[in-house]
Design a protein around this nucleic acid. Structure first.
Lengths: 181, 181
DNA sequence: AATTACTGCTACAGTCATGCTGCAGTTAAG
DNA sequence: CTTAACTGCAGCATGACTGTAGCAGTAATT
């Protein structure tokens, strides 16, 4: 692939992720315009709208998978893995803000990958509970949901907090809550 | 208004909220069909699609406002008001699952009301912090975002937990977090 | 029971997004 | 420099959604 074509492709994917996050019904014309290319250029690379969506999803899943690998959720100590995961996943969520849970439903392949990654996190939360890092009286599913939402909130409602500090706050809130002693 | 007309109107609003939450680009035909009425019937009550959206938003805002009033966020003790608010707002969020922050942007009137209600919650969180219920080292804006997200998670990812128990878990997580002592 | 409100159905025009095609011009790469 | 890749532009067909209208039939209200 020629270098300028690769640049355009990346621009379309990133712009698409951004606009589709704001409005999932954004037209391909709007994405193309915002990305600085013609509508037909997008159609050359992605035959259908679905294909474009799939490509955006796969790009996000690729980034997320790298974070999951590097966090060493299975081997590393719970506290270390947790912090590494949060610090890594926040930039991914900011760069690919599309709502995966909602939009991937019609893409079986992406949905399958998403569930695989979700299962890895479920297992990690279970391990954290087993090793005594979580209160035994709260359901793991709730802990998992809270972790997701804390990450999403920090990523999108506080876009200016740098990943390390963001991870500090998320992990601290996750474990200790916000109430005064 | 005739009784059956009122029933249909309510059905359209509730169905609209549900379908629009799943997919914000749901067509009026789909909403009408799911609500059990003809498309033109919906058009008679709501001249444009925007008008239908506005009506759904107002319905949600009405319910939320009632909860805010009854929680007595200004007068009641912080712990009481917090629990009352969470217990009340979860059913509202379940009944009107449309994402307010995202979809009300183009409706100035709804957006204004939403901000007013948001400000009341901001003030309440500030009061909680002032009265020592929250850790002094966390930004109130973060506390506020976490509260919102805990409510949303509980409302939609755990639809089977009854409001009282749901409020218990949300408030407990909010104040104490999920980490073991 | 009579009246009025309300609904379903059919039909039509307008708009917009999608998907495809051909061609001329530009630009990266050898 | 030459070539091949890539792009922008103009155009066209299709389908979906929106919004409006008229009319006959049904059901709530008095």
């Amino acid at each position: 692939m020629r270098a300028d074509a690769a640049r355009n492709l990346a621009a379309v994917l990133r712009t698409g992720a951004r606009l589709l996050a704001e409005d999932p019904s954004t037209s391909m014309s709007a994405i193309a315009g915002e990305a600085g290319v013609d509508r037909t250029t997008v159609h050359r690379r992605f035959a259908t709208r679905e294909a474009l969506l799939s490509a955006v999803f796969q790009a996000k899943l690729d980034s997320a998978e790298r974070v999951l690998d590097e966090a060493r959720l299975v081997e590393a100590p719970v506290a270390v893995a947790l912090h590494r995961y949060v610090e890594g996943i926040i930039p991914v969520s900011r760069e690919w803000p599309v709502d995966t849970r909602r939009m991937m439903q019609k893409d079986p392949d992406a949905d399958r990958r998403r569930h695989e990654q979700s299962a890895r996190l479920d297992a990690f939360v279970q391990r954290a509970a087993d090793e005594g890092y979580l209160r035994p009286d709260v359901p793991p599913a709730w802990a998992r949901a809270v972790l997701d939402q804390l990450v999403e909130s920090m990523a999108h409602r506080f876009p200016d907090v740098a990943p390390p500090q963001a991870a500090d706050l998320v992990v601290d809130t996750f474990l200790n809550g916000l109430g005064a002693a």
